[in-house]
Design a protein around this nucleic acid. Structure first.
Length: 312
RNA sequence: CGCGGGGUAGAGCAGUCUGGCAGCUCGCCUGGCUCAUAACCAGGAGGUCAUUGGUUCGAAUCCAAUCCCCGCAA
């Protein structure tokens, strides 16, 4: 390729950042603008906070669009057309992109999805991979169409899981394989050395957006299931339960022990904090009580006097 | 002014309501016991009680303001 490909990048959270960085660092691409979610109130003081992608775009003096509703924003269509961009790359944007915008790019719109499509279409593929205790996952690069995560696949790369991955570490791991895969795949696709493969829709599974209620622990579940939940929701929204009427967060790592007792019962023994589950028990290492800083379980035991040793 | 918890020795906390010797569990240092140890015994060091001002004979504690950390919410 002789001329750099004029590209629009579309993305929002931390997950998108390495992909934009990869495109910026590659001389075959010229990122001319970025579409990201509007600044949202965040933090305790409800201050407006720009998305990670916006910060990176600002640092590189890129044009930034932050439509409230991309679907209804007519002005952006003209702006994109005038930008001369021929390719769109979408990584975790957070809004549906209408066909009218996809059609603006002669070379197409390419999407990165952190699962082995058609498995885990939707909003929380990484979390669900861990939640279900999968042994393998991966990154898919696909051409976008009007349906969510439905377009034909250009490339996939499989990643093995060791059972100790958190949402955070798996995000990172998939970025390290996904970024080079994205760059190489775009070039191969434009060279016509790979052909898009339609997804097998009958094998598709879907995942919903994670809510904080999803992250509450049901202690009658097995210790293994609860462990997967703790890892899947770390660091956000953080798996939690209630202790003495206060929110009690549990962070990795945790260990499954072959012990049984009443579900939700706390046992303190030899400086170890163990909670009985529906099947087996969990030994905790990092916890946080409402209003307190995160602390090692041993420190927590030393200082906190438990009133009612049952977690709910 | 969205709601709430917190700041006390290196760590985690009690003490604050009801003002009156700076405490607990650990960690650290020294010595002892022990074949040995994360065990046990004895001794020790380590504090601007977040900051500033006020009330008081006397403030970690009561009053006012400020800074910082955290949970909820968004």
């Amino acid at each position: 390729m002789t001329k750099p490909i004029k590209t629009i990048f579309v993305g929002t959270p931390e997950f998108s950042v390495p992909y934009l960085q990869g495109l910026l660092a590659d001389p075959d691409f010229l990122v001319t603008g970025v579409i990201t979610q509007p600044d949202k109130p965040s933090g305790r003081k409800q201050t407006l906070t720009p998305s990670p992608i916006k910060l990176l775009a600002q640092a590189n003096n890129l044009t930034i669009w932050q439509p409230e509703k991309l679907r209804q924003d007519e002005s952006i269509v003209a702006a994109l057309r005038n930008s001369g961009a021929v390719l769109m790359v979408v990584v975790a944007y957070g809004q549906i992109i209408p066909q009218s915008i996809l059609d603006l790019f002669p070379l197409g719109a390419i999407n990165v999805h952190p699962s082995l499509l058609p498995k885990y279409r939707g909003a929380s593929p990484i979390q669900n991979t861990i939640l279900n205790g999968d042994k393998v996952t991966g990154v898919s690069i696909m051409l976008m169409d009007a349906q969510m995560d439905h377009g034909p696949i250009l490339a996939q790369e499989i990643t093995d899981l060791d059972g100790e991955e958190t949402n955070e570490s798996l995000h990172f791991k998939l970025a390290t394989t996904g970024v080079p895969l994205l760059l190489a795949t775009i070039k191969n696709y434009l060279n016509k050395s790979i052909a898009p493969q339609p997804q097998i829709d009958s094998e598709a599974t879907f995942c919903q957006m994670i809510t904080k209620e999803d992250a509450k622990i049901d202690w009658t579940q097995s210790a293994t299931a609860i462990k997967q939940k703790i890892y899947a929701f770390y660091p956000w929204p953080a798996t939690w339960t209630m202790l003495d009427g206060q929110r009690f967060k549990i962070f990795p790592k945790v260990e499954v022990l072959k012990k049984s007792g009443p579900a939700g019962q706390i046992e303190v023994n030899d400086g170890q904090l163990v909670i009985y589950c529906g099947v087996d028990a969990l030994q905790l290492q990092q916890i946080q009580l409402e209003g307190k800083n995160r602390a090692p379980a041993a420190d927590f035991i030393r200082g906190y006097q438990i009133k009612n040793p049952i977690l709910k």
